[in-house]
């Protein structure tokens, strides 16, 4: 379980993004909803240990991201896919995935070997020898997920993974998340509600740096009992939560 306890954070000389936040992410697939500027990306960056909280603790399975002794083990269990996946010049798909595995502590040989299954997980096997610069936007997203999975991450953090994807690519993405969730916990940040019904077990809604809702999908959808179509119901529930938060 991913736990945030009394977490505060602000970027240099800016107003606080998170203030004394307490929120838990249960096992399974959790969708992190919220409007732009709600603190979703910051939350995932903190969960990935890219930033250190100014106060409070972030824990995954008892490991604290802010504790020097735990940091290596913590990072080796967490995979993060930021919004922008940057292709590294002159590397092939397999090389870039293997490099990510090496960064996560695998030996060169092990990282190279692990890159194969990671490519297979995201259906990039046939592109292994292509230059990463030649990949499309959707393929780059899958590359990012393969990079996050290559070292056997138990928790996968996906920041706005469906932004810019067409409907067919979103369908493929839902299938991919379903496969990954069989062996890893997943947190997906988004401000779109349409996909959550199909793939999520839990919902967390962020608003103004606070957790406005935490619970199961069923509890979340119960906020809009009058809507019959699932996607419209999710959208109505989301608006309801945000309305209550304001």
């Amino acid at each position: 379980m991913l736990e945030f306890e009394g977490v505060s954070f602000r970027y240099r000389r800016n107003r606080p993004v998170l203030a004394d936040l307490d929120v838990n992410f249960q096992t399974g697939v959790t969708v992190l909803l919220g409007p732009n500027g709600a603190g979703k990306s910051t939350l995932l960056s903190l969960a990935a240990s890219a930033y250190r909280p100014r106060a409070g603790t972030v824990r995954w399975n008892g490991l604290q991201s802010g504790c020097r002794q735990d940091l290596g083990a913590y990072r080796s269990q967490v995979g993060w896919v930021p919004q922008q996946i940057e292709p590294v010049r002159s590397l092939t798909v397999r090389e870039q995935i293997a490099f990510a595995g090496w960064l996560k502590g695998s030996t060169r040989a092990a990282a190279w070997a692990q890159a194969g299954p990671a490519m297979a997980d995201v259906n990039l096997t046939t592109h292994g020898d292509r230059q990463v610069r030649e990949l499309s936007g959707g393929q780059l997203r899958r590359l990012g997920i393969a990079q996050a999975l290559v070292h056997g991450a138990q928790l996968l953090l996906l920041d706005e993974p469906t932004a810019g994807l067409d409907p067919a690519q979103r369908g493929s993405f839902r299938a991919l998340v379903s496969r990954i969730s069989a062996h890893s916990d997943v947190v997906i940040s988004t401000h779109q509600t349409e996909d959550l019904v199909d793939i999520a077990d839990h919902v967390v809604v962020m608003s103004g740096g606070e957790a406005a809702f935490t619970g199961s999908v069923a509890d979340f959808l119960a906020r809009a009992p009058h809507e019959s179509r699932p996607h419209a119901r999710a959208e109505a529930a989301y608006r309801s939560v945000l309305g209550d938060a304001e």
Partner: peptide, 16 residues
């Protein structure tokens, strides 16, 4: 260096 600049987000969360 300019190549590694592209993967700073990964290096930020690296175990190494």
């Amino acid at each position: 260096t300019s190549r590694l600049r592209d993967v700073l987000t990964q290096i930020d969360v690296a175990v190494r």
